[in-house]
Amino acid sequence: MSYETLEILRDGGVATVWMNRPDVHNAFNAQLIADLTAACRALDADDTVRVVVLAGRGKSFSAGADLNWMKAAGEASEAENFADAMKLAGMLRTLAGMGKPTIARVHGAALGGGMGLASACDICVVGDKAVFATSEVKFGIIPSAISPYVIRAIGERHAYRYFQTAERIGAVRAGQIGLAHEVVATEEIDAKVAEIVDALLQGGPKAQAAAKDLIRAVANRPLGDAVVEDTARRIAALRATPEAREGLDAFLSKRLAAWVPRG
C-alpha cells in the first residue's frame, strides 16, 4: 500500500499508520482524508493485520484542518461543503468501524479533527506534553463530523464545556475526562503502545471484532428484554466457532492459542 500522505509500517501483525505531513502538523486536507479512508479499508480487509496504530510524524499527532483547505471551503458553495464534510465524516466512521483493534498514539497537538481521530480509535495513549481541543468555534464553525466520537469518549457533560469554550485540554485532563486511556512521558509512548499491543495479540481476532460490535449494540440502550436476548444470542453464536474451541482447548491444555504470536 502506498499513499501520498501516509507511511504504513508493518511489524508482524501490527500496522502503524503514520500521518506524514509534518510540515503542517499532519493537518487534514482532501488527500489525507482520502488516504486514511482507503488505508483503513485495506487494513481492515487484511487478515494478516491484527492491530492498527495511528500516529503522526513530526511535532504533532494532527493539528486539525489544513488552513488552506478551510479557506477554500469558506469560498465554496453549501453543496460543495456538504460533499467535503461527508468525506471527512466517512473517514472517521471507517476508522471507528474497523473490526481490528485501533490505538491512537498521540503526541504534541491533537486539535479539532486530530482530537476526532484520537476519539475514533478504540484506545488512546498520550504523551504528557500532548494537547487537545475542539477549537472549531474559534473559526465560527462547530466540531460536527467528529462529535459522535468525541462525545462517546468524554460524555455529553464535558462536551457542553469544550465544544463551546474551545479550551486547550492537557494530557492529564484528557485522562481525567476519559479521552486518554494512558498518559505517559513522551519518551515512553512507544513502550506503552507496545504493552497494549501485546495484550491485544493474546485475544482471538474474531472475538475482538465481535466485542467491538457488542459495545456498539449495547451502549446507551435501555436494559430490556431485547438487549438481554441480543447478548445471549451473540455469546451462543460465538461459543460454537473454531476460534472459541481453540481458545478453550489452549487454556485447558496450558498452551498458547493459535493466534498468539510466537517468539
Score class of each variant (00 low, 15 high):
residue 40 C to L: 06
residue 145 A to P: 07
residue 61 F to L: 06
residue 226 A to Y: 05
residue 99 G to H: 13
residue 18 W to R: 02
residue 219 A to I: 08
residue 28 F to Q: 09
residue 216 R to F: 02
residue 260 V to Y: 10
residue 53 V to Q: 00
residue 154 I to E: 09
residue 73 A to N: 14
residue 64 G to W: 07
residue 60 S to W: 00
residue 260 V to W: 10
residue 194 A to I: 08
residue 108 G to Q: 07
residue 167 E to N: 10
residue 204 G to Q: 06
residue 27 A to H: 00
residue 36 L to W: 05
residue 189 I to G: 01
residue 18 W to L: 05
residue 76 A to Q: 14
residue 115 M to W: 04
residue 196 I to C: 04
residue 174 A to P: 10
residue 203 G to W: 05
residue 20 N to K: 02
residue 108 G to R: 05
residue 60 S to P: 01
residue 220 N to M: 07
residue 100 K to T: 15
residue 109 A to G: 02
residue 214 L to N: 01
residue 88 L to V: 14
residue 97 G to Y: 09
residue 155 G to S: 11
residue 56 G to E: 03
residue 117 L to Q: 04
residue 75 E to W: 13
residue 240 A to I: 08
residue 112 G to A: 15
residue 140 G to Y: 10
residue 95 L to A: 09
residue 204 G to H: 04
residue 262 R to T: 13
residue 20 N to I: 01
residue 230 D to N: 13
residue 81 N to E: 12
residue 107 H to W: 13
residue 219 A to Q: 11
residue 182 E to L: 12
residue 86 M to N: 10
residue 31 Q to Y: 03
residue 226 A to W: 04
residue 230 D to S: 15
residue 73 A to I: 07
residue 202 Q to H: 10
residue 201 L to I: 09
residue 61 F to S: 02
residue 149 Y to C: 12
residue 169 I to W: 04
residue 203 G to L: 12
residue 40 C to E: 01
residue 236 A to K: 13
residue 145 A to C: 14
residue 251 F to D: 03
residue 87 K to T: 11
residue 5 T to I: 06
residue 120 A to H: 05
residue 221 R to V: 09
residue 165 T to Q: 03
residue 113 G to I: 09
residue 34 A to Y: 04
residue 130 A to C: 04
residue 88 L to K: 05
residue 73 A to V: 08
residue 150 V to R: 06
residue 35 D to W: 02
residue 219 A to D: 07
residue 222 P to S: 10
residue 135 S to M: 07
residue 168 R to G: 04
residue 113 G to E: 06
residue 102 T to K: 11
residue 127 G to S: 00
residue 223 L to R: 07
residue 245 R to M: 08
residue 120 A to G: 05
residue 152 R to T: 12
residue 209 A to N: 03
residue 214 L to R: 02
residue 200 L to D: 03
residue 229 E to P: 04
residue 142 I to V: 14
residue 34 A to I: 06
residue 203 G to I: 05
residue 116 G to M: 05
residue 7 E to A: 07
residue 143 P to I: 00
residue 130 A to I: 02
residue 136 E to Q: 12
residue 52 V to F: 07
residue 154 I to R: 09
residue 243 E to N: 06
residue 154 I to L: 12
residue 69 W to C: 08
residue 120 A to P: 06
residue 128 D to V: 00
residue 195 E to F: 07
residue 176 Q to E: 15
residue 71 K to V: 11
residue 125 V to G: 00
residue 138 K to I: 03
residue 177 I to G: 11
residue 61 F to C: 03
residue 74 G to K: 14
residue 71 K to N: 14
residue 20 N to D: 12
residue 106 V to K: 04
residue 1 M to R: 08
residue 129 K to S: 11
residue 16 T to I: 02
residue 231 T to E: 08
residue 135 S to N: 11
residue 184 V to E: 05
residue 216 R to Y: 02
residue 145 A to S: 15
residue 1 M to A: 15
residue 138 K to E: 05
residue 82 F to S: 13
residue 170 G to S: 08
residue 28 F to M: 13
residue 210 A to V: 03
residue 180 A to R: 06
residue 219 A to M: 09
residue 45 A to N: 10
residue 137 V to E: 00
residue 204 G to A: 09
